[in-house]
Design a protein around this nucleic acid. Structure first.
Lengths: 209, 209
DNA sequence: AACAGCATTGTACTAAAGGGCAGTAGGTAG
DNA sequence: CTACCTACTGCCCTTTAGTACAATGCTGTT
């Protein structure tokens, strides 16, 4: 499988050459699109020297042309990564990635996989969990809370300490604790952290082990 | 690379056997963990017959043990997929996937890639874009966290206690605290509750009432 | 070699959090 | 009136959380 490197300066980097001896560099995808008799070829997009819009345009062109596109950058950024993958890229890596790394990436994307920096994968998933139709939305047990308990719970849900809550509600700190104890039991959580997460519809996985 | 299939019923499916003639089935990952002399082995987790919590527990065990985990399901769901990948899985597919497909997936994950149903990839990206571009609540300081610190922070963000984190990461509770102290300072939060909220992009009000 | 950053852990201590027990007080349903 | 719920609070105690100070080992870089 031949690799196509799209570079603004039209220059191949040594690492790419090391990774794929028979790779070739092209200034733009459109130029080679007609030549791509073999469908599903992999295109490596070097964004260095291009601004955001230009890069995006190149990416879309390549994707539209039916290529598998891996976006390379000198300054990996979360936002850019997601943007790229969202626009059809199947990989996002550093321009200076090691040759072995490049070959790994090629292998992955050529077999239908997605490749990005491990940290980004984590971030991406964490973020998605917030917007995905929450499987456990709205605690029904919330209705079992008394008005006063709800006040306390809401403040904990926003990171307030017992002392702060006591001050705002003008009650003793002991009372806040008393409310919290019943709240914990009613909602089936064990401490204020889990309460805060539950109040914000964020799942907690600690019950096991 | 030998494939491990974790199944509740202890039964291999024909398709798996076809894809990997020398694969073996095990009832649970923990049972085989000591045998895994070769690091980074791939584990296929069949969740059929298990409830959500059980599946999650198995997944975490396997991930903690250092395996690459592919979660298989009979009823693919967006939420479950993201959940699984968020908890460290690197693949999510159908239990009845074709043998060729399984081999593709194995290849992808063994080379550091991520594999999931194409539709899910689209959905995932579309969803992330809705939350990522918002520069306001984004914590840029998150990039200042070291890998280890990030691990701890993630767990706290899911409601884990120091002891639990220490157990999972196999370090002293004291070390967890040490990491947390640095995290608090780096992210500008004062305790684990605010950290958990910050990690989930939930605003905190403590100054005002 | 010297140095910085990361990861790790210990002792010891302070401060929150959380719970058990007990008691007061107001309101409401029976 | 009695029983019950909600709200509130005290004392005392245990468990977590979090910090201060100190130290070791490893891994890169200069």
């Amino acid at each position: 499988m031949k690799q196509l490197f799209v570079v603004a300066e039209g220059r191949m980097r040594d690492r790419w050459r090391q990774a794929f001896p028979d790779a070739c560099a092209v200034p733009q995808v459109v130029d080679v699109a007609p030549l791509a008799v073999v469908a599903r070829q992999t295109v490596w997009l070097d964004g260095v020297g291009l601004d955001l819009m230009e890069r995006l345009a190149r990416l879309r062109e390549a994707v539209a042309a039916g290529y598998r596109v891996v976006v390379m950058t000198a300054t990996p950024s979360e936002a850019e990564a997601f943007q790229a993958l969202n626009d059809g890229a199947v990989g996002y890596c550093h321009v200076e990635a090691a040759p072995e790394q490049l070959r790994e990436i090629a292998l992955v994307v050529e077999h239908g996989g997605l490749w990005m920096l491990p940290e980004l994968v984590q971030r991406l998933m964490a973020l998605s969990l917030r917007v995905v139709p929450t499987p456990a939305p709205e605690h029904p047990e919330l209705n079992n809370l008394t008005p006063r308990e709800l006040m306390v719970a809401e403040r904990v849900a926003h990171g307030a300490s017992n002392r702060e809550i006591a001050e705002v509600l003008d009650i003793a700190e002991r009372t806040v604790k008393a409310h919290l104890s019943t709240i914990f039991e009613k909602l089936g959580v064990r401490d204020r952290v889990q309460l805060a997460l539950a109040m914000n519809n964020i799942p907690t996985y600690t019950a096991v082990n």
